[in-house]
Each structure stands twice: as C-alpha cells, then as structure tokens.
Design a binder for these strands. Sequence first.
RNA 1: CCAGUUGACCGGGUGACCGCGCUCCAGUGGGUAACUGCUGGAGGGAGGAAAGUCCGGGCUCCAUUGAAACACGGUGCCGGGUAACGUCCGGCGGGGGCGACCCCAGGGAAAGUGCCACAGAAAGCAAACCGCUUCGGUUUACCGGAGUAAGGGUGAAAGGGUGCGGUAAGAGCGCACCGCGGGCCGGGCAACCGGACCGGCACGGUAAACCCCACCGGGAGCAAGACCAAAUAGGGAUGACGCGGGGCUUGCCCCAGCCGGUUUCAAGGCCAGAUCAUCCGGGUUGGUUGCAUAAGGCGUCCUGGUAACAGGCGUCACAGAUGAAUGGUCGCCACGUAUCGCGUUUCGGCGCGGUGCCUUACAGAACCCGGCUUAUAGGUCAACUGGCAUU
RNA 2: GCUGCCGUAGCUCAGUGGUAGAGCACCCCCUUGGUAAGGGGGAGGCCGACAGUUCAAUCCUGUCCGGCAGCA
Length: 136
Amino acid sequence: MAALAPATGALRRLKQRSQFVKAARGNRAGRPAFGMQSVSVDDEAPGVGFTVTKKTGNSPERNRIRRRLRAAVTMCASDFVAGHDYVLVGRREALNEPFSRLVRDVSQAIARVHTAKPNSARPGATRAKGERNNRS
RNA sequence: CCAGUUGACCGGGUGACCGCGCUCCAGUGGGUAACUGCUGGAGGGAGGAAAGUCCGGGCUCCAUUGAAACACGGUGCCGGGUAACGUCCGGCGGGGGCGACCCCAGGGAAAGUGCCACAGAAAGCAAACCGCUUCGGUUUACCGGAGUAAGGGUGAAAGGGUGCGGUAAGAGCGCACCGCGGGCCGGGCAACCGGACCGGCACGGUAAACCCCACCGGGAGCAAGACCAAAUAGGGAUGACGCGGGGCUUGCCCCAGCCGGUUUCAAGGCCAGAUCAUCCGGGUUGGUUGCAUAAGGCGUCCUGGUAACAGGCGUCACAGAUGAAUGGUCGCCACGUAUCGCGUUUCGGCGCGGUGCCUUACAGAACCCGGCUUAUAGGUCAACUGGCAUU
RNA sequence: GCUGCCGUAGCUCAGUGGUAGAGCACCCCCUUGGUAAGGGGGAGGCCGACAGUUCAAUCCUGUCCGGCAGCA
C-alpha cells in the first residue's frame, strides 16, 4: 500500500445546492461503492462533491462512507479533468470495499464519464427528479 | 469457588505515511462593503448516551408585566435538597424475593354527578329466583300466607371473614379472634406507628370518568433575535383600530380609544398611519453576530448534613462545524469469536499453541445546562446477600 | 435543529371503555350466446409495538417504532 502516493492537484469542494442539481443532469457512471455524475462548468479547477442519502445508513456509517470516498479522491486527484464538476453518490458497499479497489474505481469512473457523449446520453436531462433531497 | 444484588468506571492501545476544520501568532494578497485567500509556527478537536425531544431552566423576541378572579394545562403519601423539575435524597404505607434488595401516577369515592356490558331474581336502593322453616288449604310431589338469607346458581364484583353458641329455620341474634368505623392517650416536624376503650357492621368498584382539594404554570422558540451587503416594483387584496373631543402658555396637558388566554384594577406605552393581522405576488438563497467562562470540570481535600446537597480551599482553560471538520491507509499488540491440536477436570469448563474472521457494541456535537427514557459487544473495581468447601 | 399531525381489511377511510364497520378491490352463485353493469352470498383484521389503569382497552395513560407536513 505504500505505493499509493497522493497525487497533488487543486480540487474545489462543491458546497452549494445548485452545483449538485446541475451535476445531476450530467453524464453518469456506476460503481458498486458509489455513483458518479459529471458536468462541465466555467472553472479552471475541477470540483468534487459528495452526497450520501439518509436511506443508506445511520450517521456514523454515512460519515465513514463520505470520508473513505474523500480519501480515495485525493489519491487520484490528478485524474480529474479541469473545467468539470463531479458528484459522488455514496453507497453502502463503500464501507467494506478494499481501499485499493476504491481508488481504482474512482479513476475508471472518471474515464467512463468522459467517453460517454454529453447530452445525447441523457435526453431527459431537465427532469425535475434530479432535485430530490440527497443531502447527507 | 459458585450463584446473585447494588453502586461506580472504562468502552480499544501504539507506530509510520497522508489529510480535515478551528483558535492564536508572524508574513503577504483580494474585495465597494459585510468580509476573506495563501504561506509558516504553536495549541487543542465527539458521547455515555452526543440519540429520542419526554420534563425543567438559562438566553432572545412578543414594548414592560404586578395583583385578583375565571378558563386551560400539569403535578399529587410525608419531609428535605435544587436555579428549576414529573428528577434526586431520606422516611412512611402497600406488594414481591430465603436474602442482599427490587417495584408502586401512592391525595379525596360519608361534596355531588355518571358508568358497571353479557349473565343473573337483584349491580347500589336494598331486595329474594332456586332453596330452608312454619301455618292453612288440597292432598302423591301442588297452591297461598308468614319468617329467613346459612346453602345453590350468575358474575370481575352479591351488603364483613373464621369458629362456637343459639334457633322452627336462620341471621352480629350473642361471644372470641381478625377486619372495619369512632373519638381518646402516647411517640413522631409530618406521612404514619403503638395502646386501651367504645360501636355490632352502617360505608362495593371506578377519579390514567366528570369532578373536589392543594400546589405550579404568560406565549413562542437560536430557522429565536441583532447587524452588514446585494437585489427588486418598497407592489396588490381583505379585515381591524379609525379620520376623535377639550384646554391653553402652540407643543404640551386632560378625556375617550387601542396594547396580555378572558375580565377587573394598577403602572407604562401608542394615539392616526412610515399602524397592526392574514393572504397573494416579486427579489435574495451571501456574510457577521448570537457562539461557549458556564447553575463549568477535577480533587483519597476541609467543614456541616444519615443523604441528596450546601459552604470553603486548591487547581485546569477544555470541540465550535454549517453539502457540516474531529479522519484515511498499512503494520504490531491486546480483546472477542469460530475451528484444530495438546494438557487438565469436580465433565459445566479451564490453560497453552496454531489458523481464519471482526479490527469492534450502541452510536456523530449543531445555542447551552440539569434530569428522564431508550440503544449498547466486551471488560474492571467496590460493598453486600445466599450456598458449598476449608481453617 | 425546532414544531405539529397520523398509524384500523389489499387500498381509501369511519368508529367508540363491553367480541370492529363502510366504499372500492377479491372469491362463489344468479343474470347473458359471452363480457361489463346489476342482484345475492362469502372470505379477509392479535386496530404500529411494549408496559400500565380497569372486571374489561382499538379507545384512557406512559415509553418506543414507523411515516407525513411546516419553518429563514
């Protein structure tokens, strides 16, 4: 595990509701431990946000999921493309997944999100269901 | 040693690498502004329940809120402690346990009202279905009158219980004990306890039914509230108070009116729109403050008290996030659990070693305190109880 | 974070201290050549969970569990 050195790169943290709603319309990629949503924005540095729904578990479990995902993201921060926002929706599997697999999944999901064609992949992108309550 | 009761406490440790947010200090930038970015250093960073939001307070707003009555809500053996409490401590009464100990919304049912389904003769007034006894008629077992409430049956509950006497049969009709009621005496601050005496039984349950009594309580909540910045059309509708009166020294006073759950009184404020309430529409979804020195934590400490607790002394500076920090990964150790082997045994287990799994249970501060309730793997200590063995 | 409301048949809801109901849905029968509608009959519930008060609790009281609204 000592081979896993953190990649340096300036990452913005998404904090506002509108940013999450916008990202929900973008391209998606699913992994067992999380789901990723991405959209292009007018900002140099890539932005990352985390969200875990209340249905996933109680408060300590949700905190652990978010912290493990956050640690995995800092490991491969250089993989994020500038000018894009990413939202990771945490799932229960993130509690028990080995950490090395988590890191690999994050970079794979980034690649997958960018190979899919924007907009054409999700024609119903403006649907209101994206505004469901997904605060952690 | 085994089983148990009560109380108190802990609830992973350590090393390496990498990170997060806060405070202070130093340096350096940005913004119209409220404010804020970056670099370096130092410090500190979840709980016993942080939870549920069930009680009680602090604090803030409703301009302030004192007195009385009513309404509404709560509490409910007695005494104490507390800022306060439905919590806590001590005592009393009742119930459970061999015991240590545990549990109890535990005022009033002779102030009044209501209810007690079905069953049953009868459900609160006292009565009498089957009976029992006796008298009369008829006479095979039937009918009527009188007495009675022991026995049967119904029910959750049937107007004291047991025994002896007594009687036509019976009955507190009489007696003994128990229960119940009454005043008296003694102890106790009190709840209550004890004693002798009298009464001959009269008084069912339900107040987590209405109610009565005593005591307590104004409402809303940090998304309260205050400030800064930005933006918009300081918009519209409905309702309420209402376009007051008088005096004069012409900007003040008096009267009326309005302001609290309701009414009255008292102080105070407002008094004519820049008013208040509700609804609709529009803009913003930024920042600061409130915000952590407080009923604060700790102590083989001292004094008073059985105790809760109070007073004193000493000492410490100890989380402040807001898509929400307090962590992630790896190694070692400890603990737990499953399994295998060996040893031991009072056949319940215990000890040692190896391997796998879990890396812990319940669970994450959101203005802050005091409690309650609920969840919680495993472990430690103290006191006490019952049993067995030994001395 | 704070405040309020609600858990009864598969669904939508009544109900009240004394063995629980309506409408729709479901099953069977009648009607029709057949279906729908209509008529008749039937089944389906430990009234969210656990304690307490009461002779008796869906109802009264307390504590939990689950769900739904509102707030600057």
